[in-house]
């Protein structure tokens, strides 16, 4: 509805009559990148590479279910497989737009579920270069957006959107995103620190279409300052598999259902 309204407004404007607004680009990108399908499942392998080339691996199964529209509530379930000593650890997130997540963690060694405070969305996700926000998304209304240019990137026509956080509580000053005009997936993101220096780069390395949804199956985040980088590969990706609501409870944190964890 909003989209049509915006379109109508755009049509009435004499200039830029058919242009898409930067907010729309970001909204579409959020839908394509973080909200496709009713639900989603993937086996995630993260490779954390230090400056000296040492590696750490993280492997987990991720399940996600959307509630409502794009930008609405979501629930995540992460079940860790690697490193070996954290096997059976499970992590559950209720994500709400405009307020803090609820997070729970199951610690198998203590057979205990703990709530975890979700204070800083910009903190590292399991020690990787991705932040929690990179994994689960950022509210579009938190930033001001601006299309700085349109250019071909990696063979795809894309919008380059500059997003500047409205509040100063982020670790970066602004972000440039290259959004594919066709799939609306982010192809590349550049993070500039508050001094205006580029320091972190996200790249969508490989995109596959799964059940009609273009999906970034391989991505990297490289921190140019620390020299650290993280590569994330999705396999066994599936959409609309019918994840039930009951999964996202403490009970299944302790004993995750086998059928989702192959």
């Amino acid at each position: 509805m909003l989209r049509y309204l915006l379109l109508l407004v755009a049509l009435l404007l004499p200039l830029n009559s058919f242009a898409i607004t930067p907010e729309e680009v970001m909204k579409s990108s959020q839908a394509a990148f973080l909200y496709p399908g009713k639900d989603f499942k993937a086996r995630v392998v993260m490779r954390l590479v230090s400056k000296s080339g040492s590696e750490r691996a993280r492997e987990l199964t991720m399940l996600r279910k959307n509630y409502g529209e794009t930008g609405g509530d979501q629930k995540y379930f992460m079940y860790f497989l690697r490193p070996a000593d954290v096997k059976d650890m499970a992590f559950m997130v209720y994500k709400y737009p405009g307020k803090d997540d609820d997070r729970w963690l199951f610690v198998p060694a203590l057979n205990m579920v703990r709530r975890i405070a979700a204070q800083d969305r910009r903190s590292s996700f399991v020690g990787s270069d991705f932040t929690y926000e990179d994994v689960s998304g950022r509210d579009i209304a938190d930033d001001t957006h601006e299309i700085t240019k349109e250019e071909k990137f990696g063979g795809s026509e894309s919008y380059v959107v500059k997003s500047t956080p409205k509040a100063g509580d982020t670790d970066y000053g602004y972000k440039l995103s290259w959004i594919d005009k066709r799939t609306f997936l982010p192809l590349k993101e550049e993070y500039y620190d508050k001094r205006g220096t580029l320091y972190k780069v996200f790249t969508a390395e490989e995109i596959k279409e799964i059940k009609g949804f273009p999906t970034v199956v391989k991505r990297t985040m490289k921190n140019l300052q620390s020299g650290h980088s993280t590569e994330t590969v999705f396999s066994k990706v599936d959409y609309n598999i019918g994840i039930e609501d009951s999964l996202f409870t403490e009970r299944y944190l302790k004993q995750p259902p086998k059928k989702w964890l192959d």
């Binding site: 490193p83 070996a84 000593d85 954290v86 650890m89 610690v107 203590l110 903190s123 020690g127």
Partner: peptide, 17 residues
Amino acid sequence: KEEIGQYLFLFSMSAKP
């Protein structure tokens, strides 16, 4: 060892790398 491994992992989930 499991406990220690899980604690450290837990810590690394939110701490600065």
